[in-house]
């Protein structure tokens, strides 16, 4: 059986990041080799390592334990060791060893690099949407934002709250804003590990601006639960679910900016 081979090289997508191309058996005999190669990674001050394992033919718990130790050191330095390209057979063996609970696995190098942007550089991601001012477009929009939040690691509860916030803000934009004017509603989303920021911009009827301004300033701190009242709780609900809510009125439009911190 050929020996393990670790080839260290910069990532094409981000040359400042390091990739290990690992081929052959990751067995107990490879521990010393992994250790030496990892020392050279540390010496070069790299704290994010992508292990490309499509060529790995065998895994042992001793070698995986060694990789876990390497990862722990990188995590302590604010980085990570992530795995890409692993075959289904090897992944099921890693799963049996509990490694899938420790390492992050990515199908492609590109997604591993995106993870670096997100996890290590703490960069935010932006999504822009524009949709016609009709209620029927709001459910798919709110559900998509909720899915984005879930996919980014926000809890189900947080994602549900975000879905509710998007729903309420967009419904208000349709109801109080653009329906008559037939101008699209813009939704800008900025999401990072700590928070999601939503901005909803809609055209408003100039005749309604003063009434809307008065409505927003008289907004109750908590929603009104009176039995007979069917509407009028949306803004107060947004306020309760979010951490910051700003409403700005200009001559021809309204913009609502909501910040929701991520719960751990």
């Amino acid at each position: 059986m050929p020996d393990l081979k670790i080839q260290r090289k910069p990532l094409d997508l981000r040359p400042d990041l390091t990739m290990w191309k690992i081929e052959g058996p990751l067995d107990a005999e490879s521990i010393g080799y992994i250790h030496r190669e990892f020392d050279s990674v540390l010496e070069s001050k790299q704290n994010f390592l992508v292990a490309e394992m499509s060529g790995v033919t065998q895994v042992s718990s001793a070698a995986i334990g060694q990789l876990m130790g390497c990862r722990q050191l990188l995590v302590e330095r604010g980085g990570d060791l992530v795995i890409t390209g692993v075959s289904l057979d090897i992944k099921s063996k890693l799963s049996a060893m509990g490694a899938t609970k420790i390492f992050k696995f990515y199908n492609e190098l590109r997604t591993a690099v995106n993870a670096y942007h997100w996890e290590v550089e703490r960069k935010s991601e932006m999504v822009w949407m524009s949709f016609p001012p009709e209620l029927q477009f709001v459910p798919p929009v709110r559900q998509m934002v909720s899915r984005i939040a879930r996919q980014k690691g926000y809890t189900n509860r947080d994602s549900f709250r975000i879905e509710t916030i998007v729903d309420e803000v967009c419904n208000n934009a349709v109801e109080h804003g653009s329906e008559r004017l037939k101008k699209n509603i813009d939704l800008n989303i900025k999401i990072d590990r700590e928070k999601i920021e939503l901005e909803v911009i809609n055209a408003s009827d100039p005749d309604k601006i003063d009434a809307l301004r008065a409505l927003s300033t008289s907004m109750p701190k908590t929603p009104d639960a009176k039995l007979g009242q069917k509407r009028g709780r949306g803004l107060a609900l947004i306020k309760m679910l979010s951490n910051k809510l700003d409403i700005n009125f200009s001559g021809d439009g309204t913009s609502v900016h909501v910040t929701k911190l991520r719960e751990e």
Partner: peptide, 10 residues
């Protein structure tokens, strides 16, 4: 949502 809850109260 708040509109749905409104009709439940109704």
């Amino acid at each position: 949502n708040s509109t749905g809850l409104g009709i439940l109260l109704h």
